[in-house]
């Protein structure tokens, strides 16, 4: 991003990642919905084009799952490696996803700890290198560590996706300073992934200069997922424009908005 960009129109410009362009900068997960109808309505309301999905063992008793009711024509499916705690398993999942016909794009997650679901930086970097070598386009879930983010970029990641806060925690952006450093240092697009609790978190991420936001629980877990999806969509647009509009500096004291001359009684 940058202030040199010309802002025209009333929607953000499309997002280019690698050799693809996406009309929406909001990526939405398909997990945790109570029913397929709510999921489809929420995805529609979010305006998203990219949806994340997971790869799991087939349920041997009932093969049915919510995702069979997703309109696959409408969305770009981005398979994740959620639940993988080492590089080997993550790479296996990506290969299975390719075999499932999902192509070469993956959201890589190698987790280090079940309680925090924070990424294992070593395993993440190892898997990222291996997948890039194998021709995958890797959008990689990362911590908010600027050094790791740079290493993942060097490893050939298509996008680095630092967490705002732990997955599903709803704590929003916890370390805006680290994210700002990552955004300043990286050349590949940075998408803030995880931790979004409400619309303002998305706006803050975009105001910091993120190219996009990926979230799931913030919508799926809201009391009214469709209303929250609307909110997230507009929050993203708000943050994208604000980041390019050149905000006023913060001042300690007031600055009158109305003319200071010609006031009655002076």
């Amino acid at each position: 991003m940058g202030s040199s960009e010309t802002v025209t129109g009333n929607t953000p410009t499309p997002l280019t990642l690698g050799d693809r362009t996406f009309r929406s900068r909001l990526f939405v997960g398909t997990g945790k919905y109570s029913d397929a109808e709510t999921m489809n309505a929420a995805l529609e309301a979010s305006g998203c084009e990219v949806v994340t999905v997971a790869i799991r063992r087939v349920d041997l008793n009932s093969g049915d799952n919510l995702l069979s009711q997703l309109d696959r024509e409408k969305y770009f499916l981005l398979p994740n490696t959620a639940g993988c705690f080492n590089a080997e398993d993550a790479v296996r999942v990506c290969q299975l996803s390719r075999e499932l016909g999902l192509g070469d794009w993956v959201k890589l997650e190698v987790l280090g700890d079940r309680k925090t679901l924070l990424p294992d930086p070593v395993g993440t970097l190892e898997a990222c290198r291996e997948l890039v070598d194998d021709g995958f386009k890797v959008l990689v879930y990362s911590s908010d560590d600027p050094v790791l983010a740079l290493r993942l970029q060097d490893a050939g990641a298509t996008s680095v996706m630092p967490a705002g806060s732990p997955i599903g925690s709803g704590q929003g952006i916890l370390n805006s300073n680290n994210l700002a450093i990552i955004l300043e240092q990286l050349e590949v697009p940075v998408i803030i992934d995880a931790g979004v609790g409400t619309a303002s978190d998305v706006t803050i991420a975009m105001e910091l200069g993120a190219e996009g936001v990926l979230l799931n629980t913030g919508i799926a877990g809201a009391k009214d997922p469709v209303a929250m999806a609307h909110a997230m969509r507009h929050a993203l647009d708000a943050g994208w424009f604000a980041a390019r509009a050149g905000r006023i500096p913060r001042r300690r004291y007031a600055q009158a908005s109305s003319p200071t001359e010609g006031v009655l009684g002076e």
């Binding site: 997960g29 398909t30 997990g31 945790k32 919905y33 999921m39 994340t52 999905v53 997971a54 790869i55 799991r56 063992r57 087939v58 093969g63 799952n65 919510l66 995702l67 499916l77 398979p79 994740n80 959620a82 299975l96 499932l100 999902l102 997955i167 599903g168 995880a194 990926l214 979230l215 799931n216 629980t217």
Partner: peptide
Amino acid sequence: EVVTIVGGG
């Protein structure tokens, strides 16, 4: 292992 696509983040 037989796997498929399911909902996820």
